[in-house]
Amino acid sequence: MAEDLVSLDIRDAVAWIGLNRPAKRNAISDALLAALDGAVARAQGSARAMVVFGHGPCFSAGLDLSEHKARTAEQVLHHSRGWHAVFRRIRTGHIPAIAAIHGACVGGGLELAAACHIRVADATARFALPEGSRGIFVGGGASVHVARLIGAARMADMMLTGRSLDADAAERAGLITYVTPEGGALEQAAELAVKVARMAPLTVLGVLHALPRIQDMAEEDGLFVESLMAALAQTGAEAQAGLADFLEKRSAKAVEG
């Protein structure tokens, strides 16, 4: 069944979404993509944060190329737009998404990770964009979203030369946010998910929706939107309660010492 290709477990306001095609290194087939879309929709209706991870030996080895042998240009175009739609639902949804990465995070797998808001990788993680060496081009959003994370020049190097990045190199490049020892990505992601699930909804709205748009605005436009978002967030009930807790010393300092 298609839903078996992606596991979903919701606990403590966190949705755990697992790519579950380990025998194929979690290669993203059409059926897996549809199951992922369904799991994301359920998570966004029931949780306040989500963690995306891979069952088995790796996060994801990317696109299932076996499904693309006989596709026409028109079919490939529509297929690519379908990937964009699914990943957009993750990126522009109303709950933060955290990718917990181990092993291969390649091609479409990297595009999925880039759709998440925070990326955690353990020491076994490897990142690559092998499309160039296969005579094809990225189609799941990498040319926009991976390039924004690491820059077009570094992405061009990865595509033209087949270069892969280990976890430390990926962190230096800005591709991932946290590096853990082998086997530690899920634990780190769980800690982060609990934190972000407690955030005020208006603050989350600003981070997920205002912040990305501000990056594309002229400076003064961006600063005005920032002020609008600050006005909304800081006058919300949860913000007022949080400020009162801080002023009355009922909450921890942001930085101790």
Rank of each mutant, 00 (worst) to 15 (best):
M1G: 14
A2S: 12
D4S: 11
S7I: 08
S7R: 08
L8N: 06
D9M: 09
D9W: 02
D12V: 07
A13C: 08
A13S: 15
W16E: 10
R21V: 01
P22M: 01
R25K: 06
N26P: 00
A27F: 01
A27T: 04
I28N: 03
S29Y: 07
A31M: 03
L32T: 09
L33M: 04
L33Q: 06
D37T: 03
A39R: 03
A39E: 09
A41F: 02
R42C: 07
A47Y: 06
A47H: 03
M50L: 15
V51K: 00
V51H: 03
V52F: 09
G54E: 00
C58I: 04
F59R: 02
S60Y: 04
D64E: 09
L65E: 06
S66P: 00
H68N: 06
T72W: 07
A73G: 03
A73D: 10
Q75G: 00
G82N: 05
A85C: 01
F87A: 02
R91N: 05
G93M: 09
G93C: 08
H94P: 05
P96L: 00
A97Y: 05
G109D: 00
L110Q: 08
I118N: 07
V120L: 10
A121E: 10
A123W: 08
A125P: 02
P130N: 09
E131I: 04
S133R: 15
G135I: 03
G135P: 14
F137H: 14
F137C: 12
F137D: 11
S143E: 14
G151T: 12
G151P: 05
M155G: 09
M158E: 08
M159G: 09
L160S: 14
S164C: 13
L165C: 11
G174Q: 14
I176M: 05
Y178C: 11
P181G: 01
E182S: 11
G183E: 03
G183W: 06
G184S: 06
L186K: 14
E187K: 13
E187G: 12
Q188E: 11
A189C: 11
A190K: 14
E191M: 13
A193C: 14
A197W: 06
R198E: 14
M199G: 12
P201D: 12
L202V: 12
T203M: 13
V204N: 14
G206W: 07
G206M: 14
V207G: 01
H209I: 03
P212T: 02
P212D: 13
I214P: 11
M217I: 04
A218D: 15
G222N: 12
L223M: 12
E226G: 07
T235S: 12
G236P: 02
A237Y: 01
E238W: 01
K253D: 08
